[in-house]
Amino acid sequence: MSGPLLTPDHALSRALVRTLPDSLTERLADLGNIPVAVPVLVVAMVYAARRGRYRAACAAGLAMALIPALVVPLKEWTARPGPLEPWAAGYYPSGHTATAAVAYVGAAVLLRPHTRRAWPTAAALVLTGATAVGLVVRGWHWPLDVLASLLMCALLLLGVRWVSSPRPGSTRRSSG
């Protein structure tokens, strides 16, 4: 593999890997596991749906369903080896980062209109960032694997936000 970003990516990874205890970084990385992150989104989807925001809840669920449809083919196509496992392939982009971003930020998008506070977004960014840091510092992903997932998910989450926003001229706030 070659490219202008690979050298800085590898240098940054070498500087970061195992700078924190594995027991901590494993727990941070686990925040992106499906059994941890997806239930957070499901609870927010149920809450939003019960508040009449069916379209918003469905958009968030669709964004999560698109994660494997986008990540798996990219992993197979790039066949990028891992930082600590150069014999293995399929590390780009990071599925754990994508799962965390869509679950936590998607939940924040669904909850924020009902809280009228910034804490859902702040919590989502902290949890997603913690997942990304855990994956890179533990050595399970290159920094670009994580960055690619965040950029991909930003597009999905912009779609969720768009569907969740009230429509101009709409008198019902709960329709989104």
Rank of each mutant, 00 (worst) to 15 (best):
G3D: 12
P4T: 12
T7H: 08
P8H: 02
L24K: 00
N33V: 00
I34E: 14
A37G: 12
V38W: 11
L41K: 04
V42S: 10
R51E: 05
G52L: 08
Y54N: 09
R55V: 05
R55C: 06
A56C: 13
A57C: 05
G61W: 03
I67L: 04
V71L: 07
E76F: 12
T78K: 05
G82Q: 05
L84E: 15
L84P: 12
W87E: 15
A88T: 13
A88S: 14
A89G: 11
S94H: 03
G95C: 05
G95L: 06
H96P: 02
T97W: 05
A100N: 01
A100E: 01
A101F: 01
A103H: 07
G106D: 05
V109L: 15
L110F: 02
L111V: 02
P113W: 02
R116C: 09
A118H: 01
A118Y: 00
P120D: 12
T121L: 15
A123F: 08
V126A: 13
V126D: 09
G129Q: 10
T131E: 02
A132Y: 04
G134R: 07
L135I: 08
L135C: 03
R138H: 15
W140I: 00
W142M: 04
P143V: 02
V146T: 11
V146W: 10
L147I: 15
L151E: 01
C153V: 09
L157V: 10
G159Q: 07
R167G: 10
R167T: 14
P168W: 06
T171V: 13
R173T: 09
R173Y: 03
S175T: 14
G176R: 14
